[in-house]
Design a protein around this nucleic acid. Sequence first.
DNA 1: CAGAATCCCACCCGATACTG
DNA 2: CAGTATCGGGTGGGATTCTG
Lengths: 122, 122
Amino acid sequence: MDTEFDVLNNDCPSRVVLQRIGDKWAPLVFQALKGGPLRFSSVRSTIQGVTPKVLTQTLRTLERDGLVRRTVFAQVPPRVDYELTPLGHTLLEPLDAVRAWAEANAAHILDAREDYDERQAS
Amino acid sequence: MDTEFDVLNNDCPSRVVLQRIGDKWAPLVFQALKGGPLRFSSVRSTIQGVTPKVLTQTLRTLERDGLVRRTVFAQVPPRVDYELTPLGHTLLEPLDAVRAWAEANAAHILDAREDYDERQAS
DNA sequence: CAGAATCCCACCCGATACTG
DNA sequence: CAGTATCGGGTGGGATTCTG
């Protein structure tokens, strides 16, 4: 590695990357696409609660970052597929680990919050 | 795993956890504390660009979530140490993988953006 | 030293409606 | 089906100042 990126450094590009990861819907897109290509409507129904506008935004930025590929089929009715790029797949792994952690430890977090809030109340 | 958490489900608590993890400074706090306890000022100088207010906010929520322990020493001048809890350490691993990915692939992302933007300009 | 208080704004996100 | 257009609000984050 010749160029050195350090997230602890202000203005380091890697911070921008970290923030992409940490937006509300991006990780869920990865989770949705991890099984293979999906149409827009499928992504939308897979990720509950996302509105078309926000989903489009998210997919666009992921496409811009080279993490998602968008394929348009010239047919009626329209069909657009989304899938992870090879680069996107390399990110899927670490991201999926975080997701798995979140699902596995959500209960602990909620408990900790309860404890903390009770302690504050007293 | 008895209780089922699924980030793809709306209103699933794991989503809240994911967002906590994915805020702007939380991952950097993990990175800063991964070597052991640090004083407030040390955390602050380690994470470049963070203001005291936001750092305090971040540390508080992480403490509330049981991921960071805050220790106050009764002395003058004041001293407060922050360190990862055992639960926090279990999160450090997956989080650190993401950080490593971000640092390793920041350049690719930037390249992809440039390509995308040029293609849009035409 | 370790923050609290205050002010403020960008922007992220959501709801709704509309279209090729 | 796969979006776009428009409007609006909530809040995460920043700059500055002050304090035990």
